[in-house]
Design a protein around this nucleic acid. Structure first.
Lengths: 220, 220
DNA sequence: CAGCATCCGCTTTGATACTG
DNA sequence: CAGTATCAAAGCGGATGCTG
């Protein structure tokens, strides 16, 4: 990217990560950890492959991404964030928080990847009963399943299945997110095709107090 | 901007404010308040005038900027942030914080505007003695002077001169910022042409505890 | 002068095809 | 799997001109 040529920390940050697709690549690496090129491409629907290669090179040069040749059993190149790259988490989360109200606008033909759930989970879920035994919710909404787990008073999401989940939530992405954040009532989500198995108390335990601010028409 | 087409709050935020120059326009409106077109152009050295017009229209459409016809005595169009636009402050500050270490790299031919000082002031200054009477520092570093003032335990910057400042700081932008954030010692800054008049205690009163993280070579 | 719109050359991006 | 190569389309930068 062409530099703005301004002696201002915001302008200088944008000189480095302000290019199209760049922050979304960082999102992938933040949410999924070290990833292969193909996994990145899969998590970034719409990106042109040459663009991804270009950006990874630039990010490497900027000290944000490190390339790592995995040992023989894996035999693949891995891309991971450097500590400096991890420091982008705050900025990324704040931008995601600002964008959250836009999620209410339903746009049929948008892509979704289930690991993106980790961002709303970080933003809006918590553990209201940190002293009781931890709970696990399995979420099935697109492609691979995700597991939401409480630990240290926080809720975390990771890809995978749970052996004995305390609850299982199935449905379209907007419904799943709506139910988790509390924007959509469980009954309303059920009416629209979502399924929930388990004690509803599990759900209210992880729903945070601050709800997503509204913007335009909320989904129910 | 072309949409990323992803059902993700970060992607949707970037759909709206991810274009080149857009966040810098928001910076101007956040730091200076309602501004005329010409003032915006002046605070955004390097922008093409048609781009500024385009962006302002897009931001207006997105509900981030409002256009306001000022009454007769001023006779000019004013652009200001809507409440939704103000909500970008958090994301902008976090990005600015991430970019702060990049300020250490001296690049001779960068533009600077003194009102940009308000960002590092917000990021790194505080009032360590909120119970004592407030203090005022006048800063002269480029174009118009700025005033840093303590209030409510915080330090704020605004354009203008102070009638009876408790201290006056003069010098090149990187020295002024370095001195304020504590990255550059006063004596070192003086050696490099900066001037400070007043009780050095004033300075240590507003310098925050958390200093700017280093990155590469710090200035002195 | 403030607030744009137009034109033009250059750079960046997107889509697709191809390769070690 | 991890990219390059190619080419068309869109976006950007800079200059200039227009209008109240």
């Amino acid at each position: 990217m062409r530099s703005y040529g301004q002696y201002c920390s915001l302008a200088k940050a944008l000189d480095v990560v302000g290019d199209r697709w760049t922050l979304l690549i960082v999102r992938e690496l933040l949410l999924r950890g070290a990833s292969r090129y193909t996994d990145l491409r899969n998590g970034l629907p719409g990106i042109a492959t040459n663009l991804l290669a270009d950006r990874l090179r630039e990010l490497e040069l900027a000290g944000i991404v490190a390339r790592e040749e995995a040992p023989p059993p894996i035999a693949s190149t891995l891309f991971r964030l450097t500590p400096r790259g991890e420091e982008l988490r705050g900025a990324l989360v704040e931008l995601g928080r600002w964008g959250a109200p836009l999620m209410a606008e339903p746009d049929g033909d948008e892509e979704f990847r289930s690991h993106w759930l980790a961002l709303p989970v970080e933003l809006y879920l918590t553990d209201r009963s940190p002293d009781r035994p931890p709970v696990t919710i399995e979420v099935q909404t697109a492609g691979e399943p995700m597991v939401i787990q409480t630990a240290d008073g926080r809720a975390r999401a990771r890809p995978g299945e749970a052996a004995h989940p305390d609850a299982v939530l199935r449905g379209a992405p907007d419904l799943v997110i709506g139910v988790l954040t509390g924007l959509v009532e469980l009954a309303a989500a059920r009416d629209r095709g979502a399924q929930y198995e388990g004690d509803p108390g599990i759900l209210s335990r992880v729903r945070g107090e601050g709800s997503v601010p509204e913007h335009g028409t909320a989904p129910v």
